[in-house]
Amino acid sequence: MKALAGGYARAKDVAHALDLLAAADGMGRVLAGGQSLIAAMNMRLSTGDMLVDISRIEALRGVTVEGGTLRIGALTRHVDIGTDPLVAEHAPLLVQAVHHIAHAAIRNRGTIGGSLAHADPAAEFPACVLALGGTIHLQGPDGMRAVAAEDFFVDVFETAIAEGEILTAITLPLIEPGERHVLIETARRSGDYALAGLCLVKRAAGHRLSAFSVGPRPILAVAAMERLDAGDAAGAVQALRNEIDPPSDTQASAAYRRHLAGVLLTRALQDLTGETA
């Protein structure tokens, strides 16, 4: 099918983009990589949008270490996340995620900001940022604000981004000595959205575990984390299965997803300790 857009404007900088959104009278829609939005427009799931194309705002692209955090610009593309040396050093979880996201041609244009703003419950980056305890930076007509990943993801395709706001960057804690990251998922075909997936982070302070594609948004599996900190792997698997409420759909039943999540946790733990199954 063919997309029906209400209009298009290319933003020169963030201030211009915010002006355009304000002028669009509620019909404004940020266009970043377009790898979810244009697909939705082609399917007419979204029509009449006043597109604010932010994809050429250079200031929103790139990775830096600033003020003791890893700062990733919203427009940093999946392909660049996969090859950036600072990301490889401080957030290897994101590099692991890139290999599971879509296909090469889509990774060439899709952006991390778009992935977080889109908030597909099966997407990898939202769950990564949650497991890493990241912060999402937004800018709107009233200035900037920072939202913790725990408070950012609200529901299916729904986030804390308010009308007229733009996601500008993500910050993540710098890696500590001995910190380990594992992302594991099962998908039917390479590049498909996962049937279920997990992000496991081990720090001196304890474990952090997030699960994706097992509910309306990525969830932090706090009960399982507590069991992992206690060194109780079997208990963690059970706790994880209890604390998720996965959907049934044409891809997989809820029972299968719940089972799978437990299997994935066992494998992730083997990965973490370097044992093979």
Binding site: M1, G34, A104, I106
Partner: peptide
């Protein structure tokens, strides 16, 4: 498919392979 799945529309833009169906002509300026 026109939603990014089949790859039949793949072309080269600024040296990279991209989905022609997931990029607006307006963005190719």
């Amino acid at each position: 498919c026109e939603h990014g799945v089949c790859g039949a529309c793949t072309i080269q833009v600024d040296g990279q392979a991209v989905r022609g169906c997931l990029m607006l002509a307006a963005q190719a300026d």
